[in-house]
Amino acid sequence: MNRLLWPRSLSGALIGLQVLAPKPQTGSETNTQQRKLQVRVRRLHSVCLSHTQMDAQPYFPVQAGVGMEENFLSLDDILLSHERLPVRIECTFPRLGFLERSSDTQDIVEGTKMELPLWLSKGLYEKKRRVLSVELPKVYREGWRTVFNADPNVVDLHKRGPYYYSLGSQMLHFESPENPDIAQTLLQTFIGRFRRTMDSSQNAYNEDTSALVERLDSLEKGLFKSGQSGLNGFQSWEKGQAGQLTASSLVLNYRKRKMADGPH
């Protein structure tokens, strides 16, 4: 399992760091490896940080694809591809038993139930040759769909997701009779929650917004942020701050990074 979930992105690098961390003094090789991974983590970290900033950005962040297609360069979509899906193996995987820790057999036998990341399930899934079948995660099943249809506002989508909409759209890649219902529920949920996202993003000025965003899906958080930038822009104009020149956040961050890197 460990190996199947190995790198490709930030979470991969973090896992790698964890694996290497327990035995730091075994030799210089591990240390350099660890060092490399640390560098990678820090780089990804800085990418993530600049992703979250509201104003000037060093590049144009790519938004999540949301629909059936992922955006290759979107960080959200990369993280999304690591979401685990419950799958059932439909044909024997010879000599891959070591990946499945719960059994001691040499092969992964037909009918095994395990969890695979989305990117791998998508790769292995084929309509004609049944390699594996994907089961729906709980949030997309009948029971939860009823909840979403009743009142989407009460659900904590961050806890259930945080990629509720994106993952739901990705689930449409796997054939299931429930697909039309899932698509319908996704849309209805978004529409039902729209008003609250809009009102909170347009009214929360100069206050702590963490309570407002903690229940939002990652996609809704992006919306919240763009709503806030509209509001903040208008308010700072009204207070007459728009005419003042300020240092670009790029310059400020560069100075900070220089200071942080100084002692090394």
Binding site: V66, G67, S169, L172, L186, L187, F190, I191, L223
Partner: peptide, 9 residues
């Protein structure tokens, strides 16, 4: 976003 969710259908 709504357009994309709709085209899912």
């Amino acid at each position: 976003f709504m357009y994309k969710l709709r085209s899912n259908m």
